[in-house]
Design a protein around this nucleic acid. Sequence first.
RNA 1: GUGGCCGUAGCUCAGCCUGGUAGAGCGCCUGGUUGUGGUCCAGGAAGUCGCGGGUUCGAGUCCCGUCGGUCACCCCA
Length: 405
Amino acid sequence: MSFRPPKGTDDLLAPRSQSWREALGLWEDWSARYGYPLVMTPVLEATELFERGVGETTEVVTKQMFTFTDRGGRSMTLRPEGTAGVVRAFLASGGQGPWKGAYSGPFFRYEQPQGGRRRQFWQLGVEYLNVESPVADAEVIELGYRYLETVGVADLELVVNTLGDPSCRPAYVEALRRYLDERRQLLSPESARLIELNPLRVLDSKTDRPHLDDPPRMTDFLCEPCARHYDGVKHLLDTLEITYTEDLSLVRGLDYYTRTAFEYVGRGLATAQNALGGGGRYDGLSELLGGPPTPGVGFALGLDRIILSAGKEPGSHLDAYLVYETDVTEAVVVASRLRRTGTRVDFDGEGRPVEAQFRMAARLDVPVVLVYRGSDLPVEARASGVSHEMGLDEVPEWVRRSRDT
RNA sequence: GUGGCCGUAGCUCAGCCUGGUAGAGCGCCUGGUUGUGGUCCAGGAAGUCGCGGGUUCGAGUCCCGUCGGUCACCCCA
């Protein structure tokens, strides 16, 4: 049989996997700082959840889902996005009042693989439910922004827009539809088809955007509450000193979005696929699923592209490599002591010659090589060509200090 | 779903146009040198040429199909 992973999936091994470990660690940290507890929902959901939640006319639902019939005859789907599942879980738990959740895990879309886009991909996200205030929007946007900054994304840009709500959007959609209809000849067949189905998405098309000068603006149609909400979000972002640009053609691909829509873009990415993540407000989603009115706002970030964009060389997964001139059993004990005090250390388990151990240390590119010669002798710690001698007990602290510098 | 390019040793690739029985660099292994690994020298192991079919006396090389990768479109995080 072939050892190749399925199309659009990938094996992630060291040293590349170390970048993921670091990025996931930072995510744990940042989402916790903003008060988002972990929420874990199934990777597998009833197909109906996404059809109703994400929208039956969306690209995701019509073409990109991994859907199959299980042995009980139910139509099941590997989750293509996170929000619908989290909201379902919230409703299932009888959730009430303000609620927050952060998630991280694999998602699936049946698409043509491309730079930073695989069929199985990893997303980080948060959802903030039952708070209608712009404070929730701004907090969510800020969290994603700070995280991406910290993880090292080059040329991070935040784009925001508003999509109105059911009381004002229909008038805008109608105006846009008339505008597009007059230009039908200029549009690609796909976009022409969208005029009836979902004219907003035509604005998102790369090929058609150049033909569309001065289309109607959502901001001219906003009802008073939506306008005030949008101003509130922008004001808070200003206060938090988060720079953003407004883009009237920023439309989310999924049906459930209302009011705020935003996207994080990595301008440093070489590929055409430079959206690192996006999100928005989805006040109507709960009701689409048959639940009570539940406002919400959240985002999802694509970890694959984030790591591409950060372009950082992963650090070593070890603090030190232990070279021993003693019996291997003694090395087991020494390594155990170091590990229990927080040092990430590894050693040769087969009692191979010292030269071979040094070769392995070099190959692993560890920052520190520890040479252990026996319980009565000092440990030699070598880092970047310099050698220090110390007692075994001093090693963890010494390693920690040299790691931080 | 559509189109371009690509698939040869563990890795990066040459060989393909103009068919004739497979190569380089790096890595790996062994020996020597060395300041107990990183340098240098010598030697060595290693390839279903993605897979299947066709043309041919003969296919890595030409043709068809297929799978995979990559980039772009579509779309999306």
